[in-house]
C-alpha cells in the first residue's frame, strides 16, 4: 500500500508541483492568500474559495475521468448541469419536498447519462458526437423547464447544498470530496477500475475476454450524468436560482482540461482521479488568482492560456524525456564527481 501510494505520488509529482507553483504565485500577488480564519461559523479564506468555487469542475472531472478512461468523452456535462439545476428549481418551487427534489434531480442527471451511454454502447456512435447531441439540446431543454427565466427559489434546504456550511466547511467542498472518495475507493478497491481501463485500451479485446463492456459504458456515462447533476444543483443553489443560459456554460471544457492537466490520456486506458482533481484545483487556482490580482479583465483569458500552455508543455512526452535525460546526466555527473563509486552506493540502498 505504502509503495503504491509512493508511486502514485511520484506519478502526480508534475501536477502537484504545478499547483504549488501557482499557489505560490497567487500568494506573491495577493498578500494574505494563505490566511484561513474562522468567521461566521465557517472557514474563510482564498484557499477555501478555491476548494469551494472549484467544486463543479472537480465533480465533473470525476465523471469525466472515467468516461475518458473508456476512450470516450462527455461534452454534455455543462448542459446536463443546466438541466438538473432547472429541474431542482422547478420542483422545489412547485411544492415538492427537499428529498423528492434531490432524488428526482439526481435521477434526471442519471437518465441524461444513460442516454449518452446508450448511444455509445448500443448504437456505437462516437462519444464526441453522441454527447454533442445533448450538449446542444440540453440548454434548450433547461430553458423549457425554466420557461426562459432565471427561476429563483427560497427553500433553505436546497440553498444549503450550494452555500451551506458543514463543520465549518462549505457544503460543495464536502460533496466533491465525499464523491471523489466514494468513486475512487469503488474503482481502486475492486476490479472496476481495471475493467474500465480494459474497455479504454481495447474495447473489442475486453469484450472477447468476457468484460461486460456495454454495461460498463452505460455505468460510466451514468456516473458522469450523476456528477453533473450534483454540480448543477450546487450551481443553482449557490445563486438561489436556475440560470438555464449560463449554468455550467463551457464547464465541460474545463472538466476535460482538468482531466488532461491531471496527466490522463485522452486515448483512454490508465487513469487517475486524484490527478484530475489536482487538475481541477489548478484551473480554479488560476481563476481565483487572476481575480485577486486586480489585472484588467482583458488579460484574464490570456493569462490563463499562458499558464496552461506552460503546464502542458512541461508535461508533454518530449519535454519529460528531455528532463529525464538531463536529470540522469546530472546525477551521473555528480556521482562521478563524488569519487566514481556508483556501484557499491547503489547496492547499499
Amino acid at each position: 500500500m505504502n509503495a503504491s501510494l509512493r508511486s502514485g505520488l511520484l506519478r502526480l509529482a508534475p501536477q502537484i508541483a504545478a499547483l504549488a507553483v501557482i499557489l505560490a504565485l497567487c500568494a506573491a500577488i495577493a498578500p494574505g492568500f494563505f490566511d484561513i480564519s474562522f468567521a461566521n461559523g465557517r472557514l474563510y479564506g482564498s484557499l477555501i474559495d478555491i476548494l469551494n468555487r472549484g467544486a463543479p469542475t472537480a465533480l465533473l472531472a470525476i465523471g469525466m475521468t472515467l468516461v475518458i478512461a473508456t476512450k470516450g468523452i462527455d461534452l454534455s456535462v455543462g448542459a446536463v448541469m443546466a438541466i438538473c439545476g432547472a429541474t431542482a428549481a422547478a420542483l422545489i418551487t412547485s411544492g415538492y419536498g427537499l428529498p423528492a427534489t434531490l432524488a428526482l434531480t439526481l435521477a434526471t442527471g442519471i437518465v441524461c447519462g444513460l442516454w449518452n451511454g446508450a448511444l455509445v454502447a448500443f448504437l456505437g456512435i462516437q462519444p464526441i458526437i453522441a454527447t454533442l447531441i445533448l450538449m446542444v439540446a440540453g440548454r434548450g431543454i433547461a430553458q423549457l423547464i425554466t420557461e426562459g427565466v432565471i427561476l429563483t427559489f427560497n427553500d433553505q434546504g436546497l440553498i444549503f447544498v450550494g452555500s451551506g456550511i458543514l463543520f465549518g466547511v462549505p457544503m460543495p467542498v464536502v460533496l466533491w470530496i465525499l464523491i471523489a472518495l466514494a468513486v475512487g475507493l469503488a474503482v481502486r478497491f475492486s476490479a472496476l477500475g481495471m475493467l474500465i481501463e480494459a474497455v479504454g485500451v481495447n474495447r473489442r479485446a475486453a469484450y472477447l475476454s468476457g468484460v461486460g463492456t456495454a454495461g460498463l459504458l452505460l455505468a460510466v456515462y451514468a456516473l458522469s450524468g450523476f456528477c453533473a447533476a450534483i454540480a448543477g444543483t450546487i450551481a443553482a443553489a449557490d445563486i438561489r436560482g436556475a440560470d438555464a443560459n449560463n449554468a455550467g456554460l463551457w464547464l465541460e471544457l474545463d472538466a476535460i482540461l482538468a482531466v488532461v492537466i491531471g496527466g490522463n490520456s485522452l486515448l483512454g486506458g490508465r487513469f487517475s482521479i486524484v490527478g484530475s482533481l489536482v487538475g481541477a484545483m489548478i484551473i480554479q487556482s488560476i481563476n481565483t488568482g487572476i481575480l485577486l490580482s486586480g489585472y484588467p479583465p482583458e488579460f484574464n483569458l490570456v493569462i490563463k492560456a499562458v499558464i496552461i500552455v506552460a503546464i502542458l508543455v512541461l508535461q508533454s512526452p518530449t519535454s519529460r524525456a528531455f528532463l529525464a535525460f538531463a536529470w540522469r546526466k546530472r546525477s551521473s555527473a555528480s556521482q562521478e564527481a563524488a569519487g566514481q563509486q556508483p556501484a557499491p552506493g547503489r547496492q547499499a540502498s
Binding site: 495577493a30 479564506g45 474559495d49 432565471i150 440560470d243 449560463n246 449554468a247 485577486l292 486586480g294
Partner: peptide, 15 residues
C-alpha cells in the same frame, strides 16, 4: 451572470 458576479465579489472582499 449571477454565478460570476458572486465569485468575483468574493475575491474583491478577500482582496
Amino acid at each position: 451572470t449571477r454565478t460570476k458576479g458572486k465569485e468575483v465579489m468574493e475575491s474583491f472582499l478577500k482582496a
